[in-house]
Amino acid sequence: MNNRCVSRTVIIGLTWLVLAGVGAAAEPLPERWVVETIYPVLAVDHESTIQVRWLFEKMGIEHLDGRDWWQIRVQDLDERTPDQAEFLLDPAGGQIMTVRVREFRQGRWREYVSLQDEPRQWFLQPLGVMPLQFAWPGLEPGRKSRESNFIERVELGHGQRIRTEYHFQARRMPADKRAESAGPEARGDVMRLVITDPRSPNRSWHMTWRQDMPWWSECVTGAYSARVISINGEPVDE
């Protein structure tokens, strides 16, 4: 069993503002959603992709520091892989922490911590294969856009520490203007995020959020593209 911490992250110089509540949803937030993730197949004889349907499911609630954290479990809906992840999600405050991943490789289980017990409003480099990138749009009701920078430091040991400064842009797309470009059907506004690493211009994360979801509805990175295809068992129309 491998429980070693892999991401001793220290946040310094964070210019992020903790923004409460993106807008109270009229209905309870969904507690079960499926993220279809498209990965490349790196075979030389054909170009193709493969889809994995990751089921995100609320398993319980944990009370920490006066807040209710949802215990989310992620697993393959089709059970083609036994790998699982669990994390805590604050659906109201838009934070994530305690990301643990459990993978079955070479005939044994391996467990590791991908994010410590340290609340974050962004989490861009999850270890493992699942689409656990997270960045909260942070647009309170009425606010149309936000632009910011944030810095992540990762201790690698032996005196090595990597510091990455990200640029963050979020903008609201009102329901009546987004027309057909919004992707999955959403009630109300959607919010688009683009996060870039100025030192690696080709490196970016694109996310789409809708107001009635505690998780993004689309996420596109250089590694894969992912989108929510069902919510509480109901398919999401494109």
């Binding site: 990965y39 197949v41 075979a43 992709t49 493969i50 493992g128 294969v129 250089g222 590694a223 894969y224």
Partner: peptide, 9 residues
């Protein structure tokens, strides 16, 4: 035909 999670490109 495995799907690949690209970690560095």
């Amino acid at each position: 035909g495995d799907g690949s999670r690209i970690l560095f490109h």
